[in-house]
Design a protein around this nucleic acid. Sequence first.
DNA 1: CGTAATGTTGACTTCAGTCAAAGGATGTGG
DNA 2: CCACATCCTTTGACTGAAGTCAACATTACG
Lengths: 236, 236
Amino acid sequence: MDCQPANCCGARVDCAGCEARPLALCGALKAADVQVMGSIAYPRKLDAGKQLIHEGDPADDVFTLTDGMLKLYKLMPDGRRQITGFMIPGDFIGLAYGQSYVYSAEAVTPSTACRFRRSALLDKMAEYPELEHRLLSLASNELAAAQAQMLLLGRKSARERLASFLLGLASRRGVGEGDAMPLPMSRSDIADFLGLTIETVSRAFTVMRKERLISLPDKHSVIIDDHDALRDAAGD
Amino acid sequence: MDCQPANCCGARVDCAGCEARPLALCGALKAADVQVMGSIAYPRKLDAGKQLIHEGDPADDVFTLTDGMLKLYKLMPDGRRQITGFMIPGDFIGLAYGQSYVYSAEAVTPSTACRFRRSALLDKMAEYPELEHRLLSLASNELAAAQAQMLLLGRKSARERLASFLLGLASRRGVGEGDAMPLPMSRSDIADFLGLTIETVSRAFTVMRKERLISLPDKHSVIIDDHDALRDAAGD
DNA sequence: CGTAATGTTGACTTCAGTCAAAGGATGTGG
DNA sequence: CCACATCCTTTGACTGAAGTCAACATTACG
């Protein structure tokens, strides 16, 4: 995966075995950090549907996603699932969440993640404070996103949730009005992210399509046809 | 406010004007950090219902809560509100959330917060990496709590939400089975935290009381009578 | 006290969930 | 290349948990 202009810092580091491509730490880390991280990076390739981390396992590794898409989720004993986020290239997974992972991560599409031993990362953070500063800034952004998602889950209607979701994805991906946006996750994943059922998600898509807010060229792409109207539909 | 044994690091620092009491940075900061912070701390007292920070305002200050309780919340243009958390003494408010606050904070009870200029904090973080390390660890814990709340809001029933809320409060406060736990927030605050209406919260309280899981000596205290049963009711 | 704010309860409504069936896409083996 | 199987998605009919509206009770407070 190459750096996207929108979120790229220009920094690269060779990641042993990542198909001989340099690891592009888009958005996540700056040049100085990357030089630090380079020495401790290991690649991991994942087929779609494969789990990268399991909730409850010892949190020995952290990752940067370099290609593909991951979903992070929590499960209840009876199988109910809440997806807490979709990760795209440049995102950091497994920040310093204590001793164990507090969520699971699974590939939505075939993905490549670069793995770092947590202990090595901690050593490097002690050595290079700028790295820690950057991680704090990432954590702050994640926290702000989590709070926005709490508002969505606690107070928005099904229609508002779907509109917010599409706008958020488009903004992260830098996709504009009229452009086809890939939607690699299933309806079930979208439902579990938005706190809805697949049927409700499907119906909301259909309504928005009939209202000409969006087009659905196929199940795994969307086009936002009327960005302003979609903003109105999102409720804020 | 004195340090609670459960979450106290023993560190104190004189905070100019905090009623001549030392600022007890319980839980949030360690001794070394406190010496650093002492030089830039200013107190602020708040009556119940008074706002400490407003969503959208320039994020010039950060705070540690030393006494009382705050609620953090986000509003929609039509007035719908989602409370994203209740802060208790020792909590840090306003971490490095970019240029503007992404939520508002308001006192639930009369409260005292110690204010730090963000710019001074940033300088001190650059100077004392251990301070930044501690803030990253706080941010990670907040993130884990936010993810648990997403599961609650997206997938739990009203009964499960209330049970989870009471267990979470009791655990943070170190309150055990049979002990009266203060519940300073209104039913409306609880509803806006749990993504419910006040009527649904009230009904769920009544059902749990009738089932003898809890007692309600008055509107602003709860006793957990059957911790195990409440855990079952929480769904996980 | 008396008044306003907060909390509880009841009756009814509604939005999203459940259950069911059919339509499309994807993939495998003959 | 097609037949078949499986999975995912859409749509429809119905249900139900929580929301809304309303009345009343209780509490807090000037």
